[in-house]
């Protein structure tokens, strides 16, 4: 049985459905990313889990116990918001010790725990500072330490890095990954950034318009998105419409052989798997380059073939010219079927 179970979770605000029948299970110590565009309802899931909002329907269980009737302060699930929300009238040490003080832990033990945590987040010696004297990244680290101080059963992170500079974001990602490795705390991070999900979480659940469209190992979601919605979100080279004819997939771009099911109506391929002007490979598709941009390490081209938009990413190389017609080749083993 899973450690954290979410069953048929549903929530709406003012007649607008935010979440619809969400099912999610987490094992103890697992790190899950909840990925989705803004407004997809991912933060709402965290609020329902933390107990600061109530679901319209559905159940949340932790280690088998139903959490729905348990008040937020008794759930032992800590939510870290996008803003650090450090209490401005308390010192750094008092902030980190806040949850312990609420639990009436002895002063001496709190001081000891605070010192330990400051060491863990590499901010030792900051005990007596006020939050206003810290940088944004430091504040977020203190907020993380404050959450860890109470040893929550589940740690929820609501885009805690999105308001920080890219450089600090990267280093804090490292801090979060390290803390998870060391503490093995069951963690859910909400993010709209695919690279953040890939960098941190072994598993990613993709939420679009209040519904879960994928729940897979992060790398698999990236390399082989299971359906059209997921493929559109993570970005693929082409989503090709067609139908099965025996064992081949018939489309405007031609016929493709692959290991597709009988009811396949869309296939896709990653942009870095499409090859340009490789005469050794057949069949090939003629396409015209309409746009290009440099991503660093790779060039990205947008091409058109039979009214189909195709994105290709090619490593190294001098750029190809816009307007040029090239031959594209789709290696059959890289094509995968998309569910609708």
């Amino acid at each position: 049985m899973s450690y954290l179970q979410i069953e048929q979770l549903t929530k709406s605000y003012a007649k607008q459905t935010i979440l619809q029948n969400i099912n999610l299970n987490l094992n103890q110590g697992e790190f899950l990313a909840l990925l989705g565009p803004s407004g997809s309802g991912k933060s709402t899931i965290l609020k329902l889990l933390a107990g600061i909002e109530a679901p319209d329907a559905g159940e949340i269980r932790l280690a088998g116990h139903l959490l729905n009737p348990v008040a937020a302060h008794q759930r032992e699930i800590v939510l870290l918001f996008q803003q650090p929300y450090l209490f401005p009238f308390l010192s750094v040490a008092e902030n980190i010790g806040f949850g312990l003080k609420a639990r009436k832990v002895a002063k001496k033990l709190i001081a000891q725990k605070v010192a330990e945590l400051l060491d863990l987040i590499e901010l030792s010696g900051m005990e007596q500072r006020k939050p206003q004297q810290l940088s944004g990244g430091q504040q977020q680290r203190i907020a993380l330490a404050r959450a860890l101080a109470v040893q929550p059963k589940v740690l929820l992170l609501d885009e805690p890095l999105s308001s920080l500079d890219p450089e600090i974001r990267g280093s804090l990602q490292g801090v979060i990954a390290r803390l998870h490795r060391e503490l093995q705390m069951t963690t859910i991070i909400v993010t709209h950034d695919l690279s953040e999900a890939l960098a941190l979480a072994e598993r990613t659940a993709l939420l679009i318009n209040g519904s879960l469209v994928a729940d897979l190992p992060s790398i698999e979601l990236f390399e082989r998105p299971p359906n059209r919605a997921a493929a559109q979100f993570v970005g693929v080279g082409a989503i090709i419409a067609g139908h099965m004819h025996g064992t081949t997939f018939d489309s405007k771009l031609g016929q493709f052989n692959g290991n597709f099911g009988p009811n396949t109506f869309h296939v896709a391929i990653r942009p870095e798997h499409i090859q340009i002007n490789n005469s050794a490979l057949q069949p090939s598709i003629a396409a015209q380059i309409i746009e290009r941009r440099y991503l660093g390490e790779r060039w990205e081209y947008r091409l058109q073939a039979a009214e189909q938009l195709i994105v290709v990413r090619e490593a190294g190389q001098a750029p190809r010219d816009i307007g040029q017609t090239v031959d594209l080749h789709f290696p059959p083993q890289q094509l995968f079927a998309l569910a609708d």
């Binding site: 107990g51 302060h73 939510l79 918001f81 806040f98 609420a102």
Partner: peptide, 12 residues
């Protein structure tokens, strides 16, 4: 949110 943050940290 300051109050909500305190609540999830275990404050009654």
């Amino acid at each position: 949110n300051y109050e909500l943050q305190a609540a999830v940290l275990g404050a009654s």
